[in-house]
Amino acid sequence: MKTKIFIIILFAGLFITGCGEETTNIDIINDSAGAVMSLDYRDFDQAASQMIQSLLGSGRLKKSDNGRYVIATGRIKNDTMQRIDTDQLMVKIERELTNSGQAVFTAAVGPGSDQTLLETRELRESDEFDSDTTAAKRTLIAPELTIAGKIIQRNVPMAKNKQQVEYYFQLELSEVKTGLSFWQDEVLVGKRGSNQSVPW
């Protein structure tokens, strides 16, 4: 009887501890894992890469005086069922456009503006700070362009318990002075899979 109990406990122990999935780091350079129904980092990489290339390839960021455009990042609306920080997309785009030498981004305006930037400018009124080290008035550079957009999700039911999920990444670059659209593009990431997998 004791032996039986011992064997049962031993097997139970093996099942509980031995069948757990091993944790591994993702190889983000050569990730060969299958697609997922939700948006993952590969989708953001793909969308950002295509958007950057579209914008740089359009030649719209080339200034006649070889200067750089000052761009403010506007609102990127998350119109999906997922909790997304849209910086996952915009940080890549801002980084690449800055590195391209054709644009700089202002942190002074926009929904993601750096509040500390504005707070530090108020220090000029304080007697505690050396006035030579505080920022003077009228030194901030106003943006010439704004970039805004949205990410849309559309679920399409299919036959045989399948579903199609479409994610649209849309971005638009507009000129502040005229309000005219400078550049616009859309990247579609589509997925098909079981309707049991919930894309959120």
């Binding site: 890469s49 295509q50 390839g57 690449e96």
Partner: peptide
């Protein structure tokens, strides 16, 4: 070093031509 250096998908139908276009991240 660029965020555009990522694996991208493409496809081409049987017995058909395909084309890939890309732009460098800077000059």
């Amino acid at each position: 070093n660029s965020k555009t250096n990522v694996w991208l998908n493409t496809s081409v139908a049987g017995k058909s031509n395909g084309v890939i276009t890309a732009f460098a991240p800077n000059a």
